[in-house]
Simulated assay, not measured.
Amino acid sequence: MLEGWRLFEPQFFMGARLERTSLRRPDGYRLTLVDEGDSLEARVTTDSGARAASGRLGLSALAVPDQIVTQREHQRRGLGHAIMVALSNAALDRGFSEAVLLASEQGCRLYDALGWRVLTPFWTMFRPA
């Protein structure tokens, strides 16, 4: 029936009621937030300027964090947490109180620790050309 189609890794549609959280900035890193009007970008760089982590926040009917990425050599240092807190606080500053996102299994653990809840599992398929 679905011959030739491939299933991507499972993902999770998650939601949260945003709450202001104190931002812990890990030693040796700098966090900046760039306002792009209908979106924001959070960047964590090393003291030498190398990008260590980043994430975006779309702002429409809801706040939508997206593309939250920590470079492999900087993982397990709280940078993803810092990105999410910065984006959530920025959304609150702009009047947003609810947010949704699509998470990988790995990301789901981070978001769950921040109070996000799985609304439904989500799968996508593709058909290679």
Rank of each mutant, 00 (worst) to 15 (best):
D66Q: 14
R76Q: 12
L62Y: 15
A61G: 04
S60I: 08
D66C: 00
A53S: 05
D38S: 15
L57S: 07
Q71A: 15
A52D: 08
L59T: 06
D66W: 14
A63D: 13
L40R: 09
L62G: 07
H74F: 15
A50D: 00
D47R: 01
S54T: 12
Q75R: 15
T45P: 04
A42M: 10
D47H: 04
A42L: 13
D38R: 04
A63T: 05
G58L: 11
G55C: 06
A52V: 14
D66K: 14
S60E: 07
E36I: 00
V44W: 03
G49I: 07
V34C: 01
L59G: 05
A50E: 06
A61E: 11
D35W: 08
A52H: 14
R56C: 09
R72D: 15
A42I: 12
L40D: 14
Q75L: 05
D35F: 06
V44T: 12
H74Y: 15
S54D: 11
Q67M: 00
L59K: 10
S39W: 03
Q75I: 06
D47Q: 05
S39L: 03
P65Q: 11
D47E: 14
T45K: 09
Q67A: 06
E36R: 09
S39D: 10
D35T: 08
V44L: 08
L59V: 01
R43K: 03
G49L: 07
A53I: 03
T70A: 11
